[in-house]
Design a protein around this nucleic acid. Structure first.
Ligand SMILES: [Mn+2]
Ligand SMILES: [Mn+2]
Ligand SMILES: [Zn+2]
Ligand SMILES: [Zn+2]
Lengths: 139, 139
DNA sequence: CTCCTTATTGCAAATAATAACAATAGTTAT
DNA sequence: ATAACTATTGTTATTATTTGCAATAAGGAG
């Protein structure tokens, strides 16, 4: 799923082209966790890639299901290769982060799908909350 | 909860000040649905409010629990007064939107809270998916 | 290998969002 | 009403993101 040769095959099959820029950005994503567009640009601009291309490529990868978007606390977006399905919890007070397995939400997802008729792409949600520490302080 | 005199009281109690700018922005939010910062700016700039103040005020209202943030399909943020708790589903193909009652998620939320120890502020999530129409087409 | 088609890129310019900081103006106390 | 304190604002400058368009180059056909 996150193996680059496979991805290129899939994209080509859909009529898209594999460019050096796309490969470099995929590489960068392959190495590190949740990256903002500018963090990715920092890692790859030495190859001559332009900023708009970074933004456009991330959009492109997202709309092809290859990367997931997560929101940071502040509202900024970060990107990562869509691998195993998980969600995030961010403590609104101290910023502490936690990943939770997607299975925890599956029953609810199924329920919503039955109720609405929608088929959900419910990966990589971000929940806000208070971690146990901050929660006890605030009492 | 969304009654302006009550809100001002609450904010003052916390040591914040009630300014004309904040009141005007609250008014704008009170009138319409999900608004982006610039949409709000368009509605209020005739009063002389500056753009930074719009952004800052929205942040401020958010961190005081008075407005909720929702993401649009594209990743842009929109704001609305936090009223009754609900979530959104957006069709990734046609953009169609749907609100779902928050109760549908409550069991999952409770489960996550038990598992992680976090207390979640799980209002106003946005799910992506395919609406029934687009889903049947894509088969 | 060469030619075509057109998806994709870089550049330049436009918009959107944030930051710094001095000036302003709510609020409380006198 | 006046004064003092400081949260909040507008201005200006900076950074982040998006758009338009001509130039480039990936992929397929011959
Ligand atoms: Mn993630
Ligand atoms: Mn909403
Ligand atoms: Zn915390
Ligand atoms: Zn649809």
């Amino acid at each position: 799923m996150s193996c680059i040769p496979e991805l290129t095959k899939k994209l080509r099959a859909r009529g898209y082209r594999i460019t050096p820029q796309r490969l470099v950005i995929l590489q960068a994503l392959h190495e590190g966790g949740h990256l903002s567009p500018l963090q990715i640009y920092d890692r790859v601009h030495e190859t001559g890639i332009s900023e708009p291309t970074v933004y456009r490529t991330l959009d492109f990868l997202y709309s092809n299901g290859i990367v997931s978007i997560a929101t940071r606390g502040n509202g900024h977006m970060t990107y990562e290769l869509s691998g195993d399905s998980h969600h995030h919890i961010i403590c609104r007070s101290c910023g502490d982060q936690l990943e939770i397995a997607s299975q925890l939400l599956e029953p609810a997802i199924s329920l919503i799908e039955r109720e609405t008729g929608y088929q959900l792409i419910a990966s990589h949600l971000t929940f806000l909350g208070l971690c146990p520490k901050c929660n006890s302080i605030s009492k």
